[in-house]
Amino acid sequence: MEIAFYLSGLIAVLATLGVITNTNPVHALLYLIVSLISVALVFFALGAPFAGALEVIVYAGAIMVLFVFVVMMLNLGDQGAAQEKAWLRPRIWLGPSLLAAVLLVTLIATLWSGDAGRMISGEVLTAKAVGSLLFGPWLMVVELGAMLLLAALVTASHVGRVASPDKPEVNAESGARKEAS
């Protein structure tokens, strides 16, 4: 269990580095899928199999497939990769990376100065406990999550349409003109 945790954590960090340094969107997406699956393995190693299965099914299975479909639909060619390479000059990424490194050092120093000192023994928390929590005392939160998903559905179908709102009238007009002529 410890070996699985540390090994998959290392793979997750390396794959995430691949995501943020890659210039090809499809390669970066594949690195991201590797990262998500190794985080799912971390969940399994920690003793949260329900969360690990959900990570594989929902994150790596549904959300990433959505990303892959959109990237395929936009048909980003070699020109995009060349532009990415032009944007990724050291002068551009050095400052932000330095700031992020300072943030990381601060986070780790804060973690080590605290005295949590707890060991995760890998005791398995099954889906039964999670379900009886979610549909017992946390029922309102589940309802709120459902409302969030509904709002996201409406927003995505409104924003994602290709024609602008005044386009259909123009089309109807031209269609009428075509019929008149």
């Binding site: 995430t16 992020a100 000192g117």
Partner: peptide, 23 residues
């Protein structure tokens, strides 16, 4: 596994995502 190791892993992943976001 000490709890800190898991939290440090989460912090590293978060910082990598943050660096990617602002670069």
């Amino acid at each position: 596994i000490p709890m800190e190791h898991g939290l440090v892993l989460a912090a590293i992943l978060f910082t990598l995502g943050f660096a990617g976001l602002i670069c």
